[in-house]
Amino acid sequence: MRDLIAIIFIIIGAAFMLISAIGVIRLPDLYLRMSASTKSSTLGVIFVLLAAALFFDELSVISRAIAAIAFLLLTAPVAAHRMGRAAYFNGVPLWEGTRYNDLRGKYDQKTHLLSGSDGAKPESSLDKTQEVITS
């Protein structure tokens, strides 16, 4: 019975990881690709580690799997946030079908501060990401 649940978990995990790889190939934009690569691959790894914990059924393995899951859940969003912020400042273009870009004109490109924080002059600096289609 436990083996069967482990098989189901590992199938779900492998499917999520394959879907995230397909998303990284197929999606049109860095930011959309990042949403595919961060969330679904983390979920897939969590399912595979749970399958390992169910399969071995020892206290040391279960604690290691839980530690790895907690570490992944803590670090994956932080890494994706840092990378997306760096890409936005680097001028990586948005997809041409993007409807809303709420950050356009709000960032000071010199000091990397949002408008509203101390010392930011957002109106004086041009945003390097492309225009948003409004229709």
């Binding site: 590992i10 995990g13 492998a14 990881m17 995230s20 790889a21 990284v24 860095l30 690709r33 990042m34 690569s37 691959s41 983390t42 897939g44 790894v45 595979v48 580690l49 399958a51 390992a52 790895a68 992944l72 994956a76 890494a79 990378m83 760096a86 890409a87 680097n90 990586v92």
Partner: peptide
Amino acid sequence: TLPDRVVALDLMTTLGIGVIAA
């Protein structure tokens, strides 16, 4: 671009964790 490659590399290491667990 360079951030595309960094995101792909990050995904490869995450998939590598899954490969190691399997």
